[in-house]
Amino acid sequence: MELQHVNVKILVDGDITVDPGRFIDVFHRWIREGVIEGLLIDVADYRHVPHGPGVMLIGFDFDYSMDNAGGNWGMLYNHKSPLDGNNDDRLSTALKSAAQACKLLETEFADDGLKFSRQGFELIINDRALAPNTDETWDACQPILQSFLKSALGHEEFELQRESEPRRRFGVTVETKQPLDFDALA
């Protein structure tokens, strides 16, 4: 099974301590200063949408957002273009990129105490043709994800919870017993 267009969302730890409008300024600066490698195009502001995508940094191959889906603020990385390599490479790119962005934002907003959760993350495959949210996909993906996470996290103390609403994209919530190490991931 080929997994492409991997999304990773790392939630903010506790309540968000930063006015989301400030992410607009930061993302514009990231574009100007080339803080993130790759082609960055623009910033989209969806703060007016309840439980929406918040503030997005739109790129060509990927988007980063301070996303508020489900009313939960978090850093969402969405890889949009197809990636070469194997599933592990693609999963790893998404997880690393999300962790790196979290680190950058924690530094930017250190004074405001912005922290991202080390307890886990959401992982979504944003392609219903490749990975419909079915039992077959779950059966095929579980070993791929287990093996990847074991190697990426460096331990086996994690649990996967599958997205249960069949109309939503295939995805899992990863809960880890040992805290995530953003430095190691990024």
Binding site: H5, Y46, G52, P53, M56, A69, N126, D127
Partner: peptide, 15 residues
């Protein structure tokens, strides 16, 4: 509506 939701997620910015 459900297909529009899928397209917004997969091809656009979720909106």
């Amino acid at each position: 509506l459900e297909v529009m939701a899928e397209l917004a997620e997969e091809y656009s910015d979720g909106i």
